[in-house]
Simulated scan of single mutants.
Amino acid sequence: MTRVARSFLPHPFLTVLLIVVWCLLANQVTLGTVVFGAILGILIPQGTAAYWPGAPRGIKAGKFVVYLLVVIWDILVANVQVAWIVLTRSNPAMRTRWVTIPLELRTPEAITILAGTITLTPGTVSADMSDEGHCLLVHALDAASPEEVRDEIKHRYERRLKEIFE
């Protein structure tokens, strides 16, 4: 992207996302809604660009779409699993675990997406991050072992985020 285009659209993905979110909030897709969404989508990133000096460039959109599909699927499956656990198990039978996830991700945006993904998936929640940003502390509602949870998060989410943000 050229320098002029980058100053006009400092975060093109955010611009598109804001347009879509505005249309969803307005609950209609009309010319006026899209135009107002575009105005918001241009002004908000321009107004906040100074606070994102090291924003990632060149995110792989195709891989990000695949990541979103995986997350949506995992949320649906986890909803059913958590409902089953709540309906069929008594409290003492639950195997709650605190899990430390060592991170290979270094960009704040990727770590934020990972922590959000973990929290959005029913049955797990991101509770804390180390001061250096090298580990996440995650609580799992029901897990056979902490290693199983750690390996699944690293393989299913962190690996994909590394590919998206490399």
Rank of each mutant, 00 (worst) to 15 (best):
A78N: 08
P108A: 15
V80L: 14
S126V: 02
P102E: 09
S126D: 01
T121K: 00
S90V: 11
A115E: 02
V125G: 01
E104G: 13
E109L: 15
G116H: 12
P102I: 09
T96G: 14
I113M: 10
Q81Y: 09
V99G: 08
R106H: 11
V82Q: 06
V125P: 02
A127F: 06
N79H: 07
G123V: 01
T96C: 09
T121H: 01
P102H: 04
I101T: 02
P92N: 10
S126G: 03
P102F: 09
L114N: 05
R89T: 12
T124V: 08
T107S: 15
P92S: 10
Q81I: 07
L120W: 06
E109G: 06
P122V: 00
R95Y: 01
A83M: 10
T117V: 04
A78M: 05
M94Y: 14
T117A: 05
A115D: 01
I113D: 02
L114Q: 00
G123K: 05
A93Q: 15
W98M: 12
A83G: 12
R106L: 08
L87C: 12
V99H: 08
P102M: 11
E109H: 11
A93M: 12
W84A: 08
E109T: 11
M94C: 09
E104R: 13
T119V: 02
I101S: 02
I111F: 10
S126M: 00
E104N: 13
W84N: 09
S90E: 12
W84I: 03
A83P: 00
N79F: 09
T88Y: 06
T100P: 08
M129K: 04
N91M: 13
T121Y: 00
R95T: 05
M129N: 03
T117D: 01
M94V: 15
T124I: 05
L114H: 04
S90R: 15
V82E: 04
W84C: 05
V82N: 07
V86E: 05
V80F: 13
N79M: 06
V99P: 06
I85C: 07
I113W: 04
R97Y: 05
I101W: 07
S90D: 12
S126F: 01
A93H: 11
T107L: 14
V86M: 11
L114C: 01
R95G: 02
V86T: 13
P108G: 14
W84Q: 07
I113N: 03
I101F: 04
P122E: 00
T88R: 13
V99Y: 06
T112R: 05
T107V: 13
D128P: 03
T112F: 02
L120G: 12
A78H: 09
T96F: 12
L120S: 03
I113Q: 06
S90C: 08
M94A: 10
N79Q: 09
V82K: 08
T107I: 12
M94E: 09
A115M: 11
M94W: 13
